[in-house]
């Protein structure tokens, strides 16, 4: 029995870039956009030690979408967006409230908030199954391979691209723009909320702003690519990047690079193994993380550190120890 499908260079590597580019190009671009948007927002979640909030939101948007369907009786993306966004923000408010107003710690509060909201979503969907054209399987797993089959966005007579890709592209651009505009505010509130307050920067507003951005990113991504890819890409790129650099701007760039490499190589891996492409992208992303970890360990090896320190140590005469 052949456990691993045969490796065929034409199908696995050449095809997606040549005759099949019209579909695999969109898949790779979608993977890259999801990884970039999620990864950049995820960097701040990691720095704020709330990495699992992304996990929570990607599950708890389910009741929001269900309610939006029931209320608006349509699969219109605006209603779905608003529903999911509200659910995402409600999740963060619930987490904050449980954590601040009781002895329950934040990690437990996250666990309570998203499981109960997800369960609520499951119940709503089974109660109104005839009205809601959505199942939780689709929310969790999605399928990035269907992205090129979606309706195309037309602008001034030109076909721009499939709806999910265009939407994700806009979201990714907005994320990058917001991170640039609010760079200082995000940096100082993540590092030292007390100082931020004393500088007149409203840390609470920044927190909810970041959470809203997270909700938008998660919602626009997960329907087409599945929650697993979204959750993974919130953490993996940033975790990988932070092993390789200790400067935030460099970490952001490495995050984008990680996203691009995972999306492209993930597509090839998925084609080779004939498996879920989103799953393959996550596996490749994990591969980069392990590689970065190994590099990190190597750089911290005593012989390497000693060699570097001799070069970079400032003149001790200038400084008190």
């Amino acid at each position: 029995m052949n456990l691993i499908p045969e490796f065929d260079f034409q199908t696995v590597f050449a095809g997606p870039w040549t005759e099949d580019f019209s579909s695999y190009g969109w898949i790779m671009l979608m993977g890259f956009l999801v990884a970039t948007a999620c990864g950049l927002v995820g960097n701040y979640l990691i720095l704020r030690r709330m990495a699992l909030v992304g996990d929570a939101i990607s599950h708890s948007v389910l009741p929001g979408i269900a309610v939006a369907f029931i209320v608006s009786n349509s699969r219109g993306s605006v209603a779905m967006f608003v529903g999911a966004l509200v659910a995402g923000i409600v999740t963060t408010i619930i987490i904050e409230t449980i954590h601040k107003r009781s002895r329950v710690k934040q990690d437990a509060a996250i666990g309570i908030a998203f499981t109960s909201l997800f369960a609520l979503g499951v119940i709503l969907i089974s109660l109104y199954a005839d009205k809601v054209d959505l199942d939780q399987e689709c929310v969790l797993y999605g399928e990035i391979a269907f992205v090129p089959l979606q309706e195309s966005v037309k602008f001034a007579g030109h076909e721009i691209g499939p709806v999910p890709v265009v939407r994700m592209g806009v979201v990714a651009l907005v994320v990058v723009a917001l991170l640039i505009v609010f760079y200082k505010e995000l940096l100082v509130t993540s590092f030292d909320a007390g100082l931020a307050f004393s500088l007149g920067i409203n840390a609470t507003a920044v927190h909810y702003g970041l959470m809203s951005m997270l909700s938008v990113v998660v919602v626009s991504a997960f329907e087409s690519v599945g929650a697993i890819l979204v959750i993974a890409m919130l953490i993996l790129p940033g975790a990988t990047a932070s092993l390789l650099s200790q400067r935030l701007p460099a970490i952001h760039l490495l995050t984008v690079l990680h996203g691009a490499l995972s999306a492209v190589l993930g597509t090839h891996l998925g084609l080779w193994l004939e498996c879920s492409i989103a799953g393959a992208m996550v596996v490749v992303g994990t591969g980069w993380f392990v590689l970065a970890w190994w590099v990190h360990l190597l750089c911290n090896a005593s012989w390497f550190r000693r060699a570097r320190q001799i070069r970079s140590e400032p003149d001790p005469a200038h400084a008190l120890s």
């Binding site: 100082v188 590092f191 400067r247 935030l248």
Partner: peptide, 16 residues
């Protein structure tokens, strides 16, 4: 362990 340099932290004092 926050990914900032000494200079970045001191500059935060100017953010206000």
């Amino acid at each position: 362990d926050f990914p900032v340099s000494v200079m970045d932290v001191v500059l935060m004092g100017r953010y206000g």
